[in-house]
Simulated assay, not measured.
Amino acid sequence: MEKYIAVTKETREYLRKLFKTTDVTVWRALYFDKRAGNTLTARKIRKAAQERGGILMAVCPMMETMHDADGYMRQYFPNGVMVECNKETGRVEIIKDGKAVEGYDKVSINQLYQIQARAERL
């Protein structure tokens, strides 16, 4: 899952001056960019950002979830895939283009997270 630390423009400028570095280096540290790595400087920038009120954010896909009167939960993903859960039986299906492409029985919450991730990748 992608993540970043949200800060104000003033905080980014403060971090640049404090660590005597460039805007790009600060940006890479705040966005956990692989090119910045997990260097000591990147960790220090992130720590200082949070100490100044920066908020760690997670980027996740938008999806619509409906709990219908027929006992189903349906999740609609941006890629056109739907996850349909029968709340009574625990049966979950991934539906693409109107056809069930995968099905699972007696799904736990932890398994549902994995199924949602799978649906997102289709």
Rank of each mutant, 00 (worst) to 15 (best):
Y113F: 11
T41A: 02
G54S: 03
E13G: 09
G90Y: 06
R52G: 05
K20D: 04
M82D: 09
V101Q: 15
L56F: 06
F19D: 01
T89Y: 12
M66G: 12
V59A: 07
M73N: 06
E10V: 10
D68N: 01
D33H: 07
G71C: 00
Y31V: 11
E64D: 01
R46K: 00
L112P: 02
Y113V: 11
K34E: 08
G37W: 01
D68E: 03
T25E: 10
T8S: 15
A6E: 15
T41R: 06
K47F: 01
K87T: 13
K44S: 04
M66H: 14
L18W: 02
Y4E: 05
S108Y: 05
Q114C: 09
V24L: 07
I55K: 15
Y4K: 01
T89E: 14
I94R: 06
K47D: 04
Q50W: 02
K20I: 09
M63C: 00
N86C: 10
K9W: 05
Y4V: 00
T11H: 02
V24H: 10
K106N: 09
L112F: 04
Q50T: 07
R91N: 11
G80A: 13
S108M: 13
K9G: 06
L122Y: 10
I94K: 09
T11C: 00
D97V: 15
K20M: 00
Y104S: 14
G53H: 05
E64H: 06
V7P: 08
Q75D: 06
G98Y: 03
M57Q: 11
H67Y: 10
M73V: 10
Q75R: 08
V59N: 07
I5R: 00
R46P: 01
N38E: 03
Y31E: 10
D33A: 08
M63K: 01
T41P: 03
Y14V: 01
L56G: 09
V59F: 05
K9H: 04
I5L: 02
L18D: 00
F32W: 11
K99M: 13
G37K: 04
T39L: 01
Q75C: 03
D23F: 15
R121Y: 04
I5W: 01
I95D: 04
V81H: 09
